[in-house]
Amino acid sequence: MGATVKYDEVEIGLQIPAVEYPVHRVNLVMYAGASGDFNPIHWNERHAKAVGLPDVIAHGMFTMSQAGRFVTDWAGDPGALVDYGVRFSSMVVVPDNDEGAVITVSGVVEDKLDDNKVVLSLTARSGDSRVLSKARATVRLA
């Protein structure tokens, strides 16, 4: 069990290239069902607009899951994750059209700790907004 990326081959400042994750309304419906979060702001445009939102927005946890996938795909094993935290700083607005929305995630190695652990600082954007802030993942490398 463990990561495929080697601790000794990773330096502070290493940039992990951005990955784009598309989001469509169907993804939010699936996420609502799987997570049990049926808040209508995530699937009902009429309700979202009635409470002052521009449109249906993605679950924060859906966005956090995309950035989590970015980390586990890079590290090579979900079991390598030691600590993962984010602040939800802006909404991912998901219009009801063929384009939907895109969450773009990138990362940089911010620190190297003992026990083969590294800290990644993550950036997640959608449109013009930074949708996560203080997003950090600690991963135990090989």
Partner: peptide, 13 residues
Amino acid sequence: VVHGEQRFEYVRP
């Protein structure tokens, strides 16, 4: 209510 922050500390998967 909106979700403000979330963090997980993992001992094992």
